[in-house]
Amino acid sequence: MTVIVRDLRPGDRSDVESFARVRHLALPYILWTPDAILHHVTRTSPEARFRSLVAEEDGETIGTAQVSLAHDSPEPGQGLLNIYVHPERTGRGAGGRLVRAAEEHLSAHGATKLFAWLLDEPANRAFAERRGYRAGRTAHFLRLDLAEAALPPLPAPPAGVDVRTAADFLADPRPLFQLDAETHADEPSDVDHEFTDYEAWVEETWQHPLLDRDLTTVVVADGRPAAFSVAFTDGGSRYATAMTGTARAYRGRGLARLAKTYALHRARAAGCTQALTGNDSGNGPMLAINRSLGYEICATEVRYVRELG
Rank of each mutant, 00 (worst) to 15 (best):
W32G: 00
V16T: 11
A111H: 04
T2W: 00
T246H: 10
T90G: 11
F228V: 00
S45W: 04
F127R: 05
H265K: 12
P155H: 08
A147W: 04
L258F: 08
I289C: 14
P34D: 13
L276E: 02
T2L: 11
H40T: 09
T205E: 14
A181N: 05
I4V: 15
T244W: 01
H24K: 13
T300F: 01
L258G: 12
R213C: 10
V67G: 13
R134A: 12
G235K: 08
K113F: 05
Y262P: 04
V85F: 05
A135Y: 05
E103D: 09
L258D: 12
G282L: 03
Y295R: 05
E103L: 15
D58E: 15
A101P: 10
Y250K: 09
L146C: 06
E187V: 15
R131T: 01
L211S: 12
L119W: 10
G96Y: 02
P209D: 02
P157F: 03
R130M: 01
Q274M: 11
T261F: 06
F19L: 11
P158N: 10
E187G: 07
A111G: 03
P173V: 04
M243F: 11
F141S: 00
E296L: 04
A139I: 00
A102D: 08
R213V: 09
A166C: 10
E204P: 05
G95K: 03
A256W: 12
G132V: 10
E56A: 07
G11D: 14
H86C: 02
L151C: 06
V22G: 12
S189P: 07
A181E: 08
G96C: 04
R248F: 00
G63R: 10
Q178V: 14
L118H: 05
G95E: 06
R266H: 07
W206A: 08
A288Q: 14
T244I: 10
R238I: 13
A102S: 15
E307Y: 02
P28H: 07
L215M: 08
T273Y: 07
G282K: 03
A149L: 05
F169C: 14
S18G: 15
A200P: 00
E57T: 04
V163K: 01
A116W: 01
A126D: 13
A263G: 09
F19R: 03
A94I: 02
R303D: 13
C298M: 00
A240S: 13
P225Y: 06
P152Y: 03
I289S: 14
P158F: 02
L27I: 05
A240M: 14
L98N: 01
D58A: 14
G236D: 08
N290R: 07
E307M: 05
R248A: 15
H109E: 01
D222R: 14
A149D: 12
D186F: 00
S107K: 13
R143M: 03
V163E: 05
F127V: 00
R13F: 06
L53W: 02
T61I: 07
P76Q: 08
N279H: 04
T183R: 09
L38Q: 10
F228G: 14
G309P: 07
Y295T: 01
L276D: 00
R131L: 13
S45H: 14
R51S: 08
A123M: 11
H193C: 07
A167D: 15
Q207F: 01
D172W: 03
E121W: 02
T183H: 09
R253S: 10
C298E: 13
L114F: 03
R253C: 04
L38A: 11
R43T: 13
V16I: 11
T300D: 00
A26Y: 07
